[in-house]
């Protein structure tokens, strides 16, 4: 401890001492507590899942059965349905969040009355309990007594049966997901819009650009980092989504709104631990196969420009 101080007067000596201490001042053991928790409760199960997905598993004994779980996963119609639904749900929610989020952000950064109020109400659902929102919307989306269809009936539209119609169930949940999550996309876009230098719009105004040209030539390209973030974040969330779907439909009617995450839970409840774990591996591979190339592609363009 006193070495550095006694070397004090001589500049060279101090630099050497400082350099020698640098490693010691930022010791690697600072990683250790976090690494133990993360390693034991996240990495270890993830690695173990690769093995257990190949077994018939009761938690006490695991019989190796090769790829049988995965074969079942791609052969059973309701499991395949879950895989397709996961993709639909991820793409629909993240697409809508990009479009609606960007439009809302443009609206909320423009000069209109009631901006503070609007920002608050758009963002608040992000913080509310997902299960609570789900239960409330189940009541609002009731085919005959629900408020949404009663309102539609007043203007002469016969609303769909939302959650009880197999064709609409998944999309109805996706809509509620967008309702709840669009506030996050909006604030990300708002941060992006605010950081665009006003000079560009100034220059465009002198060149006589219309509002429409401003949007396509300035705002949209410069919002690309925000768009990348919104797409990646909402895809990761959408593909893994479980609680809203479980609270609203439990994967029903039938298996029409099942996604991989709800399949994992159902197989776990039924005691098919091997199959449930195989579902986890499928989800992992699916998310990685989509997110990693997508983020590399989106970020590569970023560098080239």
């Amino acid at each position: 401890m006193s070495d550095a101080i006694t070397a004090g007067g001589v500049t060279a000596g101090r630099t050497v001492a400082r350099r020698a201490r640098r490693g010691a001042s930022y010791p690697n053991w600072f990683y250790l507590p976090a690494a133990i928790v993360f390693g034991v409760l996240f990495l270890l199960p993830t690695i173990a899942s690769l093995f257990f997905s190949l077994t018939r598993w009761t938690l006490f004994e695991a019989n190796f059965i090769g790829l049988a779980n995965f074969i079942q996963f791609f052969r059973e119609p309701f499991l395949v349905q879950g895989l397709i639904n996961t993709l639909i749900y991820g793409v629909v929610t993240s697409g809508l969040k990009v479009i609606i989020g960007m439009l809302l952000a443009l609206l909320l950064t423009s000069d209109i009355i009631g901006r503070g109020y609007l920002r608050a109400v758009v963002f608040f659902p992000v913080l509310v309990s997902t299960v609570g929102v789900g239960i409330a919307f189940v009541a609002l989306m009731h085919p005959t007594q629900g408020m949404i269809n009663e309102t539609l009936a007043m203007v002469g539209i016969k609303g769909p049966a939302w959650l009880t119609d197999p064709r609409f169930a998944l999309y109805s949940v996706a809509l509620v997901d967008v309702w709840k999550g669009v506030g996050l996309a909006t604030v990300i876009y708002m941060a992006g819009i605010v950081s665009i230098p006003q000079d560009y719009f100034e220059a465009a105004r002198i060149d006589g650009a219309t509002a429409w040209q401003n949007f396509w030539a300035i705002t949209l390209p410069l919002l690309k980092p925000a768009t990348v973030t919104v797409i990646i974040l909402s895809l990761i969330g959408g593909l893994r989504s479980f609680d809203l779907i479980w609270a609203m439909t439990r994967g029903g009617p039938g298996f029409t709104s099942d996604v991989i995450a709800s399949v994992i839970y159902k197989q776990y409840q039924a005691g098919f631990y091997g199959l449930s774990t195989a579902g986890n591996v499928v989800l992992f591979v699916l998310v990685a196969l989509i997110i990693v190339p997508l983020s590399m592609f989106l970020n590569r363009n970023e560098v080239e420009r």
Binding site: F42, L44, P45, T46, A48, S49, F52, W57, L59, I236, L239, R240, A261, I264, Y265, Y268, Y273, S276, T277, N280, V281, L283, F284, V287, A288, I291, V292
Partner: peptide
């Protein structure tokens, strides 16, 4: 990115 593996 990785979804946690539940049963393991």
């Amino acid at each position: 990115i990785i979804p946690p593996a539940v049963v393991p």
